[in-house]
Amino acid sequence: MTSYQELGKIFSKNNREIITLWLNEITTKINSERITEEKDCKLLIECIEECFLVPPTDLLGVEEQVYNSEQFKRLKKELQSFAAYRALNGYTPTQTANYLLTFKKIIYDLIYQKHSDTSPRTIIDFNNFIDYLVVISFQFYTDSRDEIINSQAYALEHDTPIVKISKKTLLMPLMGIIDTIKAQKIIEGLLEAAVEHQAEFVIVDMTAVPTFDTHVANNILKTILAAKMVGTQVILSGISPDAALTIVKLGVDLGHVETFNTLENAIAYSIKS
């Protein structure tokens, strides 16, 4: 009997107990709702058990056979959705890693209490197996996280709307951190919109710009100069105290630019003139 078969036997004998033990451990350690975990846990245990029960052949080593089997592919798929769900719902990396680590712990306890005649080889194989699962589940977890971060970055990057608020005025609210790529898009978008709508004024609202550094200041300045060349006046609004401090310290001269504390005042100015 291979070590995997031995494990499979232990699993099928103690199936119910493993599920309750693991759920108890998860709910106390990871601080999560029992109802949400129950389905996932049952599914994962079922998949793991199936992997142990892969019938051995003489062609390959036992380990390779298990890792190459259809059952293992299914387990991987389930782990992926398991990890992706946790990444999406704001579980910490520690919490996510703890699922399989607590699983290892309860199985060891179980073997120690009930199956103390299990061979050391089996325990080592089990250990390696779960460690491998931890590694790939963590990979899935970080992949999902990266995906979320990228999509958010993409949304921020491509979301600089230009709104026409009166016959001669456009409004461009800037959001998030302005890097070089985004700045180029802002310049292009602003100039093209100004020419297209024949707008006399473009109000650039910076209320939602959290940080302000040399690059941002430089890019804003470039935008203002370029806008002046096509014949549009840029009005800045909502420069925070922090940003004002930075602008003056950097020695950027915005003296010839109309600036207002609030968007409201900027709009009032554009209507008046």
Binding site: I187, E188, L191, E192, V195, A226, M229, V230, G231
Partner: peptide, 27 residues
């Protein structure tokens, strides 16, 4: 000056030109 194209304006700014002494208009 009138009708400076957006692309022209951003290139000129990138080159460090300012066109300060001449007023510009959209059309």
């Amino acid at each position: 000056l009138s009708g400076v194209q957006p692309a022209v304006a951003s290139t000129l700014v990138d080159m460090g030109m300012k066109l300060n002494s001449i007023e510009t208009f959209l059309s």
